[in-house]
Nucleic acid binder design. Structure first.
Lengths: 122, 122
DNA sequence: CTTACGCTTCTACAATACTGGAACTATGAG
DNA sequence: CTCATAGTTCCAGTATTGTAGAAGCGTAAG
């Protein structure tokens, strides 16, 4: 993933409403959700929702397909994977390997264990 | 990492100038870089740079320390790690495991190999 | 003390983004 | 065909963000 696209994806997710929408799409899995359903769940006017959905589509974070008069939106997981790849390699490949970071990430989801790395957290 | 903070970090990195600054900080490693040096490298006016640096600090993506009359900025790797953790678990923990994603990310950095997953890329 | 330097804060302006009502388009039911 | 439903696009209006000159604040050297 190029930096230019990374900026676009990061900016797309760096907005509360949009990240909320995206999380709902993830929850819904590959089956996706119709726009109206998302609007109802998030209590966002359809026009506003549509605006953000176009944004997510443009960043390749969401896909849409028509089913009757519904428009079903679903998350594009590969874009997130690529973003993570970008963060791991282009940004943070210097001080440690991706697997190490994955290890740290995995550790974070567990209750708690004595921190292994010595880095403080400002 | 809470969603609220994730939005902040994503937004902080979702801006070209700021991502550029951050990448330079990463390149510089733990030693960091003085503000003026960053401004010179990126050819950004000091006032503009300072604005973005405060932004990065607020998102806990950068730290600063004074050394004489220099202000040295350095990247806070753990925040990126946590962001990745958030993306892996809170966002994308549904369809596959973190290690799988790490595998995909690792694969992406190599020249090219026949795509293993069947997912299309819209 | 005075000056130079490095950086931040102040300030104003331009650009961009977010929001949501209203009008419009497409699909399906009666 | 007519009507209802689902979404998108249009169009303000408002808010937020990005940019950068100018002034201000420390620090250190002369």
């Amino acid at each position: 993933m190029r930096t230019r696209q990374a900026v676009e994806v990061l900016a797309a997710l760096g907005q509360e409403t949009r990240l909320d929408i995206f999380r709902h799409l993830i929850q819904a899995g590959p089956a996706g959700l119709p726009a109206g359903e998302i609007a109802a769940r998030l209590k966002v006017p359809l026009a506003t929702l549509s605006f953000h959905l176009q944004h997510l589509k443009h960043a390749r974070l969401a896909r849409s397909q028509k089913r009757g008069k519904l428009v079903i939106y679903s998350a594009n997981f590969t874009t997130v994977d690529r973003l993570i790849g970008y963060l791991l390699h282009d940004c943070c490949g210097r001080p440690r390997t991706g697997l190490e970071v994955c290890g740290e990430a995995a550790r974070e989801s567990k209750p708690a264990s004595k921190s292994v790395s010595g880095e403080a957290d400002s």
